[in-house]
Amino acid sequence: MSAKLYLYPGWLRLWHFSNAILCLILIVTGLSMQYTTQGDSMISFQLAVSLHNICGVIFVFNYVIYFIGNMVTTNGKFYWRNWGGFFKQAITQSRYYLYGNFKGESCPFQVNEEVKFNPLQKIAYVAIMYVMVPLVMLSGIAMLYPDIIIPELNGISGMFLTDLAHIISGFVISIFLLIHIYFCTFGTSATSNFKSIVSGYHD
């Protein structure tokens, strides 16, 4: 029986849980606003706007906690260290997901105290948490205070460009969420990773 690793400290689990709830509300209300219809909407436009705004603001504060947490604790190292030989490692990990896993091979990158993420997880988390999330937040803040948006850029409405950035980054995050949930089933059992993010201990 292998020893359990304490990889998810309390603050991170709390952040992760609230972030997940907020993301779900933001996706549902965002879709509701974008595809609203007259009369028979699942959520009223006004409620969707209010919920989206409130959750968006909490989401930003939550991100600040995550960002500072990653700076002052050891959690940040999992994102930024060990990038040497990334492409080769990413190919090895991809091969495992597409082939090796079906052949009963074990994951080429085992979780330990120094490496929490495999190369594909690492690139995905960095892209989402340090590119897409800031983009969705900045464009969201701009739309919450539309007066700060430049009226036009090269003849295109600034509001339109901001909204486009918000919708596209929001969509990418939604797709990430699906993939993230599925890949969490790749643990010692299909549910072990879900249990880990609740208990804090990696199996």
């Binding site: 606003m33 609203t36 007259q38 009223s44 436009f45």
Partner: peptide, 10 residues
């Protein structure tokens, strides 16, 4: 006063 009068496809 309905938002969707303007904020909708139609």
């Amino acid at each position: 006063k309905g938002c969707t009068e303007c904020h909708s496809k139609n």
